[in-house]
C-alpha cells in the first residue's frame, strides 16, 4: 500500500524537482513521503475545531497554509478515505450551509491523539531545523 501512496504523492502537491542528482532524488523521495504525511495531518488539523465536508476541509487547509501549499483538490478524497480506514475520522451525511446534501467528517478520539502526536513531532522537528539553521 505504501507504494500506492508515494505514487499518489507525486501529484498530490504540484512541486517539481528538476535537475536532481542522485542525492537530491533520494531527498525528493523523502520529501514526498513527508508531504504525504503532511496532507493527512493537515486534513486532521482542519477537523480539529469543527466537523467539515470535503470542500470546507480543502478551504481550511488553504487557509492554514496561507495558500503556500497548493493542493490538487481531488487528492484530498483518497486521503480522507485513508484516514477513515485508519479510524482517525468518521463520516456522516448531513446538510450543508447552502442546503445541499454533503458528507461531513469528524475527528475520532484516536484521530485527535494522532493529530496531537504528529503536531508535537513537527514542532520538535522544525525547532531542530531552525536551531541547525541558526548555528550554521
Amino acid at each position: 500500500m505504501d507504494e500506492v501512496f508515494s505514487v499518489l504523492s507525486v501529484d498530490t502537491l504540484s512541486i517539481k524537482f528538476l535537475s536532481l542528482t542522485n542525492l537530491e532524488k533520494e531527498m525528493a523521495k523523502k520529501v514526498n513521503d513527508l508531504l504525504q504525511g503532511t496532507l493527512d495531518m493537515l486534513a486532521l488539523r482542519a477537523l480539529r475545531d469543527e466537523n467539515r465536508h470535503g470542500w470546507a476541509i480543502q478551504q481550511r487547509i488553504n487557509q492554514i497554509s496561507n495558500d503556500l501549499l497548493s493542493i490538487n483538490q481531488g487528492s484530498l478524497y483518497p486521503a480522507l478515505i485513508r484516514l477513515e480506514k485508519k479510524g482517525y475520522i468518521k463520516s456522516d451525511w448531513g446538510v450543508s450551509e447552502n442546503g445541499r446534501r454533503a458528507k461531513y467528517y469528524r475527528l475520532t478520539k484516536k484521530g485527535r491523539v494522532q493529530m496531537e502526536a504528529e503536531a508535537t513531532l513537527w514542532r520538535e522537528f522544525s525547532t531542530t531545523i531552525n536551531l541547525i539553521m541558526e548555528i550554521l
Binding site: 500500500m1 500506492v4 499518489l8 501529484d11 490538487n72 483538490q73 481531488g74 487528492s75 478524497y77 483518497p78 486521503a79 478515505i81 485513508r82 480506514k85
Partner: peptide, 18 residues
C-alpha cells in the same frame, strides 16, 4: 482543473478503499 480529473480521483479513492 483544480480538482484534477474526476475519474482519476475516483480510481485513487477506490485504491485507497482497498
Amino acid at each position: 482543473r483544480s480538482f484534477g480529473g474526476i475519474e482519476q480521483r475516483k480510481e485513487d479513492c477506490r485504491e485507497a478503499w482497498g
